[in-house]
């Protein structure tokens, strides 16, 4: 055995094993438990029905249910709304506040605050703004002749209302990542372009954007993974309603498990969602590894 392999083994034994054991116990085990549940008829509302093995029945129910697909579509709709807005706004704001002008560093810092606020608080403050009859938002929109908009009380607007809250909290994320990437670009090509007289749009389109692209892709993946899990803000604002207008995957699982107490069905839906998100995560990791390889060169 080579000397380095030997050393690897010692480091692994002492340093790595504890984390792996802990993560297995706290993450893999509950997931396997969910898998086990998903094959059972585990219905807390009907305690007298034995919790028997039902094969793929729960999966069959989930995959044929309209509500599940509606939740899936709603999740992706919300993802599309928030990601596109966050991308455009985030990059735009980053370009604006990355200029070397006094005060811009402070603006960049202040804009980071929303990200570090608990999603529940974000939900609550937007609830405060949207609140039917009383909310400030409609009052101010009224001043400029808009509205009143039934933000969270109409099926038409509720998803938008949630999207706005999420956009408010996470546009800074794209802004921050983009600003960091902008800073790491070397200034010389920009000076060359200024001497050559390339228009600003051309410089952005052909010099900046291509260099930002890998970073933007990574950031969007991270946002997509988070958007797929979105729960807290919806729980606070609409609890999935009105009707099922804002019922995303997480809320669907929540409702199956804790409103109808059908743990087996909830677990089956959970597993389907784990598989979907695994795809997203795998794609993201591929992108990250590409980035690492590119940087190593």
């Amino acid at each position: 055995m080579s000397h380095t392999a030997n050393r690897d083994r010692r480091i692994a034994a002492v340093f790595l094993i504890p984390a792996i054991v802990v993560l297995f116990a706290t993450t893999i085990y509950p997931m396997l438990y969910a898998l086990w549940l998903s094959f059972r008829n585990y219905d807390l509302a009907k305690p007298f029905i034995p919790r028997i093995f039902v094969g793929l029945a729960n999966y069959a129910e989930v995959l044929t249910s309209k509500a599940f697909f509606h939740a899936l579509i709603t999740t992706f709709k919300l993802m599309a709304m928030t990601l596109s807005a966050q991308l455009v706004l985030g990059v735009g704001i980053a370009l604006l506040v990355s200029q070397k002008l006094p005060g811009m560093a402070l603006a960049r810092t202040l804009l980071l605050i929303p990200m570090m606020i608990s999603p529940v608080i974000v939900g609550l403050v937007w609830l405060f703004l949207y609140f039917p009859e009383l909310g400030y938002l409609n009052y101010f929109l009224g001043l400029v002749g808009i509205g009143p908009v039934p933000w969270i009380s109409s099926t038409q607007w509720a998803l938008t209302a949630i999207a706005i809250g999420d956009i408010w909290q996470w546009t800074p994320f794209i802004m921050m990542g983009t600003a960091a990437a902008l800073q790491s670009l070397s200034p010389e090509p920009y000076e060359a372009a200024r001497i050559d007289g390339n228009s600003r749009w051309d410089v952005f389109r052909y010099v900046t954007l291509p260099q930002l692209k890998p970073v933007l892709v990574s950031l969007l993946f991270l946002r997509a993974i988070d958007a797929f899990k979105i729960y807290d803000i919806i729980f606070v604002l609409t609890k999935g309603g009105p009707a099922d207008a804002t019922e995303v995957i997480s809320l669907y699982i929540y409702r199956q498990s804790f409103t109808f107490w059908r743990m087996g069905v909830g677990a089956a839906a959970s597993f389907v969602s784990l598989i979907i998100i695994s795809v997203l995560i795998t794609l993201f990791f591929k992108q990250m590894q590409r980035g690492q390889a590119a940087r190593a060169r």
Partner: peptide
């Protein structure tokens, strides 16, 4: 291994709430 560890952070919490509750 590193990516496996990272993936543990990315799964939706709601999917494991019930097992946690029971456990």
């Amino acid at each position: 291994v590193a990516f496996w560890i990272l993936s543990m952070r990315m799964f939706p919490p709601i999917a494991v709430v019930v097992p946690y509750y029971i456990i």
